[in-house]
Design a protein around this nucleic acid. Structure first.
Lengths: 245, 245
DNA sequence: CGTTCGGTTGATTAGAATCAACTAATGTGG
DNA sequence: CCACATTAGTTGATTCTAATCAACCGAACG
């Protein structure tokens, strides 16, 4: 297999961008898409496992994740980034890494700020994203604080499934989820072995499976039950729109 | 003691507001403070334990916290709100409750949005707050995922101490921290008994004490060691300023 | 002056980490 | 194309951390 087999190039123009309807710039009407060209400062294709050093970018294809190392050398995965997500790599402790081969569109922080300064709609879109991020972190906090291993796994699978569905990926019965068990474990505060056992239990009970990069939901009711799924939509205070979550 | 003994009234004008330097409106120069009067839609004084139903408000005095109930009736505390913090009570599952007697300034969501639409600086200030919230949630996620009980307690105490210091409360050796052990436990995903034992260990080892609403830091080095304290400042991508965190 | 709430302590149990193999894929170079 | 190496997933045994259960104490309060 060629070294670049899975690298998905980006379209040259934002007008043709397939993830824009789910991304920061969704609020820019098609007629004005030309104006955002100056904000883009480049594109990048990276391989699974590569560290991403760019400051602000929009995922185009593939998955990435943000993580941080603890003092004793273990890893906490803080969030997963899907196509359309705006990602900021800040200077602090957190690292960003490509989970699969991935491509993304790098933005100029400066010009983005400037543009938001005279386009409140774009600023609101940015705020929406942050609000949703916070809501997701809160959900995860509840998982790590009060759910057992099976519940945590179930909840994360439902979260990812929902996010994928909202951007047109997968279907009600499953979706492409390229996570390794180690990612699950590190996101959920579990050991790999225990994450494995939780997953095995879901499989044995005919609730869901995660195999070869594919999530299959066999019994949604049971999965939601395990997860203590609130079903909650997470709309931001300043977010009347109902786009990608 | 009178029923209203601890209720701190707000000043009539934003110009005299003692928490504004740490709050959303810090970016409005003193000369233009008059303009934000229209955004305020009222003030409220509440007693410890009261549920807060207002949508968007700035804490003026006292503490509050946001929490959510799990299916099995337990509680997860998602965040603590200190004077100067902007708090949004969204429709979803999360509740906001006064932790002490508290007073705050209610904002009109609509007029706030409108104002931010023509004042990018205010929008940025709002974004800064959200970014910091997210960073704090990520820190906490790391605690719940990868730190043991003592580490979680130590980390939260340091976080709160830092936030208080930055808004002029307390001193390097301690601060007023009105948390009950149950709040600690519910924020950190521990049972009350276990939170108690962790606190007892800190006390026994001369690291820190939390007693009668007061945090005393006896050995900061040791506390940071336990917490795996990264020390990291958490500046937002769009946040060049270095105000309250 | 009894009640309640917050805090403390001990005994027991349960859930998850750790340690230790081992198997199944995936991938690579000869 | 095969042999070997590496990564991902699986399983069992053991240890440990934290939850649960059960009292009990002390201070604040009404």
């Amino acid at each position: 297999m060629s070294r670049n087999a899975n690298l998905t190039p980006l379209p040259g123009s934002c007008a043709a961008c397939t993830v824009r309807p789910f991304a920061l710039f969704r609020v820019i009407p098609q007629a004005r898409v030309g104006e955002i060209a100056r904000i883009r400062s480049g594109v990048r294709l990276v391989r699974a496992g590569d560290a991403i050093m760019d400051g602000v970018f929009t995922m185009y294809a593939g998955w990435a994740f943000t993580w941080t190392a603890t003092n004793d050398g273990r890893r906490q995965v803080l969030d997963f980034h899907l196509p359309g997500d705006l990602v900021e790599r800040t200077e602090d402790a957190a690292e960003v890494e490509a989970l699969t081969d991935a491509s993304f569109c790098i933005l100029s922080k400066e010009r983005l700020c400037a543009f938001m300064g005279h386009d409140p709609g774009l600023a609101l879109s940015y705020v929406e994203g942050l609000t949703r991020d916070r809501a997701r972190m809160r959900e995860r906090l509840t998982s790590l604080g009060r759910r057992d291993a099976a519940g945590r796994v179930a909840h994360l699978l439902l979260e990812l499934h929902g996010r994928l569905l909202r951007r047109g990926g997968g279907d009600p019965r499953g979706a492409a989820v390229p996570l390794k068990q180690a990612h699950l474990a590190d996101a959920l505060g579990l050991s790999v072995e225990h994450a494995n056992r939780a997953l095995a239990a879901l499989r044995k009970d005919g609730v869901a499976t995660l195999h070869k990069g594919r999530l299959e939901i066999l019994n949604r009711k049971a999965l939601e039950e395990l997860a203590g799924w609130g079903g909650g939509t997470q709309g931001g205070m300043l977010a009347p729109t109902t786009l990608a979550g």
